[in-house]
């Protein structure tokens, strides 16, 4: 599904070059459950952004579902993100003026999906993520766990094959974090590919494939059978 070859990403910070990714070569098959761990500044988030087409590598090739997406135009990349990739962020990134339902609907609105179809999908998602009672509430009226469930429902609304979660539990207490991980694991059981960046070793250990990054390079790649 994902095939990275020799990915380099260099940032310039105050005239100094920082190698966020050094020659990362990686293959991830469809339906894998992958965690990425490592110290701060090791390039975990940058790797996730490159995979999510939010960031362009300085060198290397990236194939998604057998298609080279490295040099796609911004608009084409936007389409790929819309249709194949769902994001979950540490700070939820819900639009504060929209209700939970409207936030979940947003990717479908951007994709220009027919309102009738949208509402049918929305009803299913609200039920699936246990948000029916909260659908008309705005983010400031929701708990952190509810916010993150809204964000996951939103990420799932376009049926993407790939879910990228950047520190999804970083802003939640332990118990709520466990619940959110459980929700993400349900997505994995449904056949989705899930990549989680995390600091929490316990959460990282639950994944079937565990990558460890140091200084922009993948230093270990462990697998355990599900």
């Amino acid at each position: 599904m994902i095939r990275l070859r020799g990915i380099e990403r260099v940032f310039r910070i105050g005239g100094e070059e920082v190698h966020a990714l050094r020659g990362v070569t990686l293959e991830i098959a469809a339906g894998e459950y992958v965690s990425i761990m490592g110290p701060s500044g090791s390039g975990k988030s940058t790797l996730l952004n490159v995979v999510g087409l939010l960031d362009r590598p300085n060198a290397g090739r990236y194939e998604l579902d057998g298609r080279d997406v490295t040099d796609l135009s911004d608009d084409e990349q936007a389409r790929v993100r819309r249709e194949r990739i769902g994001f979950v962020f540490q700070f939820f990134h819900l639009v504060p003026r929209l209700t939970a339902a409207q936030n979940i609907e947003l990717p479908m609105v951007l994709a220009g999906i027919d309102p009738a179809e949208r509402h049918a999908r929305l009803a299913r998602l609200l039920a699936e993520y246990g948000l029916e009672a909260r659908s008309r509430h705005r983010p400031d009226e929701l708990s952190g766990g509810q916010c993150q469930r809204v964000a996951i429902a939103r990420a799932m609304s376009m049926h993407p094959g790939l879910i990228l979660a950047d520190e999804p539990t970083g802003n939640l207490d332990r118990q709520t974090g466990q619940e959110v991980i459980a929700v993400l694991e349900r997505v994995h059981h449904g056949g989705g590919t899930v990549m989680i960046v995390t600091h929490d070793p316990e959460i990282g250990a639950r994944a079937h494939r565990r990558l460890r990054m140091v200084d922009g390079a993948v230093v270990s790649d462990e697998r355990s059978e599900a």
Binding site: D74, A78, R79, R81, R82, L110
Partner: peptide
């Protein structure tokens, strides 16, 4: 900014 970045992550094009 955050909202704009989010819209992009959700697949909004620059034109949208």
């Amino acid at each position: 900014r955050g909202e704009i970045g989010l819209l992009k992550a959700l697949g909004a094009t620059g034109g949208q």
